[in-house]
Nucleic acid binder design. Structure first.
Lengths: 242, 242
DNA sequence: ATTTGTATTATGTCATACATATTATGATAT
DNA sequence: ATATCATAATATGTATGACATAATACAAAT
């Protein structure tokens, strides 16, 4: 009975699984890179000794992952995989678990805290002006309280990501946005941000962040951002402990 | 001729595209979430008025994205999509373009800069001890110079991510690792990190980061981390300007 | 009660045929 | 000769029907 332990499980991979792996091998063996055309489905099928169906499903997977692009009715070529794109289709807050949502919300805060150096490195006058406009529009409608309407919030922080000049980061935050909104709304239901007590009596507004971005340093900006995000940090850390 | 502008392009979506969207709608309409079983392929096919082939391809896409799990020969159920998993298969530095690589490298630095608050919030004595071990092992073999072997580097920073207690972040960094290594190696070829001149004459070692994590604050830690990463920041920003 | 056989079921795989869009090529008209 | 229009060739897209296979439940057997 004990001897059964020696028996290693046989590969239970489906044909499609195997073909997918073989295809990836094939691309590597032949040094195929983005832009290169690949053989047609039928050729793969006959050479691999499987039906076109199987080849097609394997190719479809790689296409779904963004590794292959299908020129309709003409052929397929390898493609530079688009990392972010895969997220987009599944980044639906209603389908993600609460734990993942929490993680993603935290991730966004980490990004905001960590991007300071890139902002200062890449900021331009034009962008500062645009940010200025956003803040002014905000001030015109705001009551001076801590709570902003969600769209103003999004506009301001979105602009920051844009200034970072990192496309991947920018698109990534675009994906995190629905999550942010989702959690934000849930959060503001629980308690009233207007009433929130900032540790030093004042809260850091978008205006202050902007001024800081203009004349400050990455270091001062990080500290300002930390205080700007304080309600969120507080919320996360408190809830984690209760 | 001008009137042609009014003509909006007809939907060029393939049947599979449409079915994929319909399926997603269906899940929402019926309030289906992770764990819930979904109708079988044939039922979808007859009800949608398309062949099983099309339904199957649409389902396969969602499966590839991790939205659906197929219990072999028994049926399919909705699944909590695994955000990170999709990355893993395509995160091959040789297949990613240099621009994306640069973005991802930057992204990793942003994460390291931004995670301080979470480290201080979640750190435990046990983890500090483990980090201590890592640093000691490192010091035993190191010459005291700025350059560390890659695996020590990975061990230390990997531990930090672990301390953050954010699974998504942790797995994300695991994916970024190959990119980091890839860029790191290219970087250290260009110039010698041993010779690197830190702005204040000293460089921040892992030991210092650890001590800071023990007795400092998120704020001091961020500043320490910034200086620890200074060679990388410098490299990125210099190259961007030339 | 545990094991073993059996029917059922939904997915996995196969084979074939036809539809459709793209491109190239050649035919036609001005 | 240039531009426009048919035509054929090609590879993917879609449809259909069939059978294989694995998971499960339940009956049968020891």
């Amino acid at each position: 009975m004990e001897r059964l332990k020696k028996l290693k499980p046989v590969d239970t991979l489906s044909l499609v699984d195997k073909v997918e792996l073989r295809l990836l091998e094939f691309f590597k063996e032949n040094n195929l890179g983005p832009g290169d055309p690949i053989p047609k489905e039928l050729d793969f099928a006959t050479n691999l000794g499987v039906s076109r169906t199987v080849v097609r499903e394997a190719l479809l997977r790689l296409r779904t992952l963004g590794l292959i692009e299908s020129k309709k009715h003409r052929g397929m070529i390898l493609k530079q995989p688009d990392i972010i794109n895969n997220f987009e289709r599944i980044m639906d807050p209603t389908l993600l678990g609460t734990k993942t949502l929490k993680n993603l919300f935290e991730l966004r805060m980490i990004l905001e805290m960590g991007m300071a150096d890139f902002l200062f490195e890449h900021k331009t006058q034009k962008e500062l002006d645009e940010l200025e406009e956003i803040v002014e529009a905000e001030e015109a409608t705001s009551t001076g309280k801590a709570r902003f309407s969600l769209d103003k919030e999004v506009a301001f922080h979105g602009k920051l990501y844009q200034i970072s000049k990192n496309d991947t980061l920018q698109r990534f935050q675009g994906l995190l946005l629905p999550v942010f909104e989702y959690v934000y709304l849930k959060e503001t239901k629980d308690r009233d941000l207007d009433e929130y007590h900032y540790t030093k009596g004042t809260f850091v507004t978008h205006r202050m962040l902007l001024d800081n971005l203009k004349v400050g340093t990455p270091e001062t900006f990080r500290n300002a951002m930390r205080r700007h995000l304080e309600p969120h940090f507080d919320h996360i850390f408190k809830n984690g402990k209760k």
